[in-house]
Simulated scan of single mutants.
Amino acid sequence: MNPGPSTLINPAATAAVLAEVAAERAAQDARWGQQDHVLGIGPDRQTAERTFAELAATWKRRCQLVARDGAPEWAFIALEEVGEFLECTDPARARAEALQAAAVFTAIVEAIDRQVAGGVLVAQADERLYLDDRT
């Protein structure tokens, strides 16, 4: 069931995560002061090997493939959102994409909390997280 754009499934969980985000932002401000960096985005910007547009297209394709296979992964959903931000050339669009990415990362934290609380997500000795196949 899709709850719709104005209804949160668990508003208390979202509020708790956003309170943690606010605390982290306060810690960042305390450490580094106000940050007003250049955005450094645009489809023609380049990493060592590829433009941001190429990276974004790759991440979007991968996200669509895993979702089509019935196994969407937060990592690729997050990368797709970051990719959309990286391609922006307009400040208003960049802001909207940054908010979308923040919302996805908030949902990831909520999912981690649910999965850890339910014993579904466990840490292995190599410190990676795995879905617990014993359930």
Rank of each mutant, 00 (worst) to 15 (best):
A48S: 02
L8Q: 12
I108E: 12
T89D: 11
D126S: 03
A123V: 15
A23I: 04
P72H: 11
P72W: 12
R95I: 02
I9K: 09
T58N: 02
E110Y: 03
R25Q: 13
M1S: 13
P72G: 10
M1Q: 04
G42P: 06
G119S: 05
L79T: 02
F105E: 06
G42C: 06
R128Y: 08
L129M: 14
T47I: 03
Q64G: 08
Q115Y: 05
I108Q: 11
E97Q: 09
R25E: 13
K60W: 01
A117G: 10
R50C: 10
T58V: 04
E87L: 04
R31V: 04
L79C: 08
R62T: 15
A26R: 06
A13Q: 12
G70Q: 14
V17E: 14
D36W: 00
L39V: 05
R128V: 13
G83S: 09
Q115T: 02
A78F: 01
A103P: 02
E97C: 03
L8E: 15
V17T: 15
R31C: 06
W59C: 03
A16D: 11
V38F: 12
A96T: 03
R114E: 15
V104Y: 05
Q46G: 00
A92T: 11
I9Y: 09
L129R: 08
E49G: 14
Q124M: 13
I41F: 01
S6F: 09
M1I: 09
Q34I: 01
R25A: 07
A67D: 08
C63H: 11
D132I: 13
L18S: 08
I77N: 03
T47F: 00
G42L: 05
R95C: 08
G42V: 04
Q100N: 13
T14W: 02
V120G: 00
P43A: 08
I41Q: 02
A23F: 05
E81Y: 07
W32L: 15
D133K: 14
E127G: 04
E20K: 14
D44Q: 07
F105N: 10
I77E: 11
A53D: 13
T89V: 08
A27R: 04
T58P: 00
G119M: 06
A27S: 01
P11R: 05
V122C: 14
A27T: 01
